[in-house]
Simulated assay, not measured.
Amino acid sequence: MIPITEQSSLYDNLETKSVEELTSAINQEDHKVAKAIQEVLPQVNCLITAIVNKLKNGGRMFYIGAGSGGRLSVLDVIELPTTYGLPKGIYNAVLAGGEDRLIDALEEMEDDLNEAWDRLNAANISEKDIVVGISASGSTPFVLEGLKQCRAHHIATGCIVSNPDSIIAGQADYPVEVLTGPEFVTGSTRMKCGTAQKMLLDMISTTVMIQLGRIEGNNMINVKLINDKIMDRGVKMLMKKAEIDNYNEAKSLLLQYGTVKNAMEKLVKNHD
């Protein structure tokens, strides 16, 4: 049986179609992604709960992946220290070929049977941690062997795959099987599969950060003040939360204490 991700596109003779016809058809296919994710939310919730429990007990989160999915996981992890003030090393990505080769399409590295576990082992992976494999096909050797080794060492595992009953899902304690159907261009899993992976990565990391207390209300109270835009956002956030009318006063407090959360805690402590 041909895996869903390799099945022929529902569209043909693409080279004969107009720009309008192509974009309309791609958009129709993209509409299917959110629905596919909705159908697996119970699986996603189980995975997120497992990640939160590990991190609350001093563990770490590791994504392992190759190709588009692996690169998307790197981008997700890169954002977290700035957006949520999360210390580096808690949320991690292991990309086939290395994260420093992000812009290189090292697809041949997905067949490496040893790199994933070697890299995890070098990071002193332990039973306190959780490892989530990302593979559209559900059979990527780099991911599969990494998860196999994790299970052999009693390390919790999860996965995000796009085919049912895959061998990678069989190695996951918390599998997420999001079935988006054949791709618009046959086998081009950077399309719907990649879109689903991006949406799931956003959903997982954002929910985990909220559960870890790194959001208050709907605000990024731990955001790093890395540029003028974020500084201005932080100042206005602090003004609203602390009921400070003077912009410069709020900015001075924010610069002094580094984050909105720290500034608010200091103000509350001084008030008490």
Rank of each mutant, 00 (worst) to 15 (best):
E127P: 11
E107C: 01
A105W: 09
E127H: 01
A123G: 04
N121M: 13
L120V: 13
V94A: 03
D118M: 01
D111K: 04
D112R: 09
P87C: 03
I103L: 03
D118C: 10
W117N: 06
L106S: 07
D104Q: 05
L106I: 02
E115C: 08
N124G: 01
D112C: 04
I103Y: 00
K88R: 12
E115H: 04
A116R: 08
N121C: 14
G89P: 13
N124S: 13
G98L: 08
L95F: 08
L113M: 14
I103K: 10
L120A: 05
G98E: 04
E127L: 08
N121W: 14
N92Q: 09
D111P: 04
D104P: 11
E127F: 00
V131Y: 06
G89K: 15
I130F: 08
E110I: 09
L106W: 06
D104A: 08
S126K: 15
K128N: 11
K128P: 00
N121D: 12
Y91I: 13
I103N: 04
R101D: 02
D129Q: 00
V94I: 15
E110Y: 07
I103F: 04
A105C: 02
I90W: 14
G98W: 01
A96R: 01
D100V: 15
E127K: 08
Y91V: 13
N121K: 15
G98N: 03
L120H: 12
E99Y: 13
A122L: 14
N121H: 12
K88L: 05
E108W: 00
I125Y: 07
Y91T: 12
D100P: 13
N114I: 15
R119A: 02
I125V: 15
L95D: 06
I130D: 01
E99A: 10
E108P: 11
D111A: 10
D112P: 00
E110S: 05
M109W: 05
R119Q: 13
N121Y: 11
V94W: 13
R119S: 10
G98T: 01
E115N: 10
V131R: 06
L106T: 09
I103D: 09
Y91Q: 05
L113R: 14
A96E: 06
D100R: 10
E108D: 01
E107P: 02
I103R: 09
M109P: 12
S126D: 10
N92K: 09
A105K: 11
E108R: 10
L102D: 04
V131D: 06
K88E: 07
E107L: 02
D104W: 09
Y91F: 15
Y91R: 12
P87I: 11
M109F: 13
I125A: 08
D118R: 01
